[in-house]
């Protein structure tokens, strides 16, 4: 016991440990979608201000990740997937994570306000609050719908990017939010169907464990259908266009086919081929989101060169 205590005390946290607190993999999605929201907006932004804005959004997302790790340190220590995170591994003290999370949150929000506008900063502050308090502290351990509502936190970045450029919220930014919001549940539930999780041991209610795998399959399809509608609706706004719609047709047919296949299958089918369809659909879901946002970016590029007008768009 003494040895373990001494080892923990002498372990020195390095920059990498603090960086890991910020969930860099989640930050990648945040940076990409926020950048798309910024680029597709009809109002131009000074490149340096745009860079600072994206940095603030990324740091804000990282700060909420640190606050999440501080709050969830007890369950992270139980689950295999999270046991090596900086706090349960002993590299970073919980108090440090809290201090870093709060400081970076304030830093990101204030700097975004000074660099851009109050709406963008307010949305970032709300996103951090939503992820750290509403999702982590409240919903995560109390309802199997945690992923659905918590997914909103991941859906805000393109809306913030749009607000940075325009200073407003519009149907385009709401639909970009809706695309990520509706995409999150089928994406994570497809993963939950083939990954053996220990959420149950940690006391976190996951739909696969609280309501069973059949209900989860139903839910995946139930969220996929409105997701398709949102994806196509985005194509008919000012940021959509023929290229986006072409990409959307391909990706939505691909993903919807996978969701229907998951819905039709039984657990016996799934076990027999080692969850091949669930795995494939999960991978497709990643291409799905990346593809839609990339297509929006390409549309913005085409528009800037006047190449969409020939199609009468």
């Amino acid at each position: 016991m003494t040895d373990v205590t001494n080892q923990t005390q002498t372990q020195e946290a390095q920059m990498g440990d603090y960086f890991a607190l910020m969930k860099p993999r989640v930050m990648q999605l945040v940076v990409f979608t926020a950048l798309v929201g910024l680029v597709v907006a009809p109002v131009g932004v000074n490149p340096f201000v745009g860079f600072v804005a994206i940095l603030c959004i990324a740091v804000g997302a990282g700060a909420s990740g640190a606050l999440n790790m501080w709050w969830d340190a007890d369950i992270d220590a139980i689950m295999k997937r999270t046991v090596n995170r900086p706090i349960p591994s002993g590299a970073v003290q919980p108090g440090e994570a809290l201090a870093i999370g709060l400081t970076l949150s304030a830093f990101a929000v204030v700097l975004l306000f000074l660099a851009t506008n109050a709406l963008a900063a307010g949305l970032l502050a709300f996103t951090i609050f939503f992820y750290a308090v509403v999702y982590s502290m409240w919903l995560k351990r109390s309802t199997p719908q945690n992923i659905v509502i918590g997914g909103a936190a991941g859906a805000f970045p393109p809306m913030i990017g749009w607000a940075v450029a325009t200073g407003s919220v519009s149907i385009e930014s709401i639909l970009m939010f809706g695309l990520i919001f509706m995409w999150t549940p089928p994406h994570f539930w497809a993963l939950a169907l083939f990954v053996k999780s220990d959420y149950g041991d940690a006391g976190v209610p996951m739909l696969t464990e609280t309501h069973g795998r059949k209900v989860t399959r139903n839910h995946i399809l139930a969220y996929c259908v409105p997701l398709v509608l949102v994806a196509f609706a985005l194509g008919f706004t000012s940021i959509g266009g023929p290229f986006y719609l072409l990409v959307a047709v391909v990706l939505n047919v691909w993903f919807l086919t996978g969701c229907v296949a998951i819905w039709k299958r039984t657990d016996e089918d799934s076990e027999a081929d080692k969850h091949a369809v669930e795995r494939r659909t999960f991978i497709v879901s990643i291409y799905y989101l990346f593809g839609h946002f990339s297509a929006l970016m390409v549309e913005a590029l085409l528009r800037s060169y006047g190449l969409t007008s020939w199609a009468g768009w």
Binding site: N46, V49, V52, A115
Partner: peptide, 13 residues
């Protein structure tokens, strides 16, 4: 660098 850059951008704008 960020504060300096923002200052330059804001003043020139």
């Amino acid at each position: 660098g960020i504060v300096f850059g923002l200052t330059v951008v804001k003043v020139l704008g």
